[in-house]
């Protein structure tokens, strides 16, 4: 077992740091239904951490706990060495945690550029008067943040759709714009809820490449949920496996692949 502050090296030679976020004994119930039962795991600085499991295992609930949508009845969430109290989602966002959604949650009426600019809202502080007169701080801030956003647009190769309303884009591009919006916030942890759901092979390849590049170039810590086992095993440094709200496996992809509980959960097991 690794020490909290100690890092480790990945197979491809990247250096992973200490614990950035830690979930301790999380239990989440909806009425009588137990969605998450006593789960603990950590996310380390700079790693790609996957959460996998069959349908209804509680993966998305876990992500919603991290991003502040659900408040667990038991357990603690620690972020950067501090215990996080119950927070509203927008407060969590201000801590530096950004996410994408399983069903795309973009702002359909706005252009791609505006969508991505919303990701930087927390960095824009100009007052009402300055904004109303478009003078001083408001204009300066707009242009400075636009520059950052353009870097992300270049990075994700969506320059040509900059001014297109998001509602008109095909599915794969929408997913990419959503990633761009989350990245624009320059998050410390990026949560991706099924970033490749419903994509064809090429789109999946593109998306995988972007996820790896984001991790590599910006050093962003990534936690992702994904169904495509091939993708998960290739992308992630460590994997948490959930089934029926419990954690049944945790470790690097090879360990998880050999874990008998995981094999049973995925392939089914004969009860005799």
């Amino acid at each position: 077992m690794l020490d909290k502050t100690e890092g480790y090296s990945t197979a491809d030679g990247r250096q992973i740091g200490g614990v950035l976020m830690e979930m301790k004994n999380i239990t989440l119930r909806f009425g009588g239904v137990v969605a998450i039962k006593d789960i603990s795991f950590d996310i380390r600085q700079g790693e790609i951490r996957a959460i996998i499991g069959p349908n209804g295992a509680g993966k998305s609930s876990m992500l919603n706990v991290i991003s502040g949508f659900y408040h667990p009845q038991e357990g603690e969430v620690w972020f950067k060495g501090y215990r996080r109290g119950p927070m509203k989602p927008y407060e969590v966002a201000r801590l530096g945690i950004a996410r994408t959604f399983q069903n795309i949650a973009l702002f359909d009426g706005m252009s791609v550029l505006d969508n991505i600019m919303t990701g930087r809202l927390n960095r824009m502080k100009s007052g009402l008067l300055s904004q109303a007169l478009w003078w001083g701080a408001a204009e300066r801030e707009e242009n400075e943040n636009r520059e950052q956003v353009e870097k992300i647009i270049d990075f994700l190769e969506i320059q040509n759709i900059r001014k297109t309303p998001v509602g008109r884009l095909p599915y794969g591009l929408k997913k990419r714009v959503e990633l761009a919006r989350a990245l624009a916030a320059e998050p410390q942890i990026l949560l991706l809820d099924e970033p490749m759901a419903g994509m064809n092979v090429e789109e999946k390849e593109d998306m995988s490449r972007f996820i790896l590049d984001v991790n590599d170039e910006f050093g962003t810590t990534i936690a992702l949920i994904e169904h495509d086992m091939g993708v998960v095993m290739d992308l992630s440094d460590r994997v948490v496996v959930m089934d029926y709200g419990r954690k049944i496996g945790d470790g690097n992809p090879d360990e998880v692949r050999r874990n008998q509980d995981v094999i049973d959960a995925y392939l089914g097991v004969a009860h005799d």
Binding site: T118, W134, E141
Partner: peptide, 30 residues
């Protein structure tokens, strides 16, 4: 003034709330 407000930060907050309030909250709109 309406044009200035709607093209800037405040306008984006409004439109974000209009188009999808949950996503707006998750990116930090109060």
């Amino acid at each position: 003034i309406a044009r200035n407000l709607t093209r800037g930060t405040l306008g984006r907050k409004w439109m974000a709330i209009r188009d999808m309030d949950i996503a707006a909250e998750i990116i930090g709109v109060n």
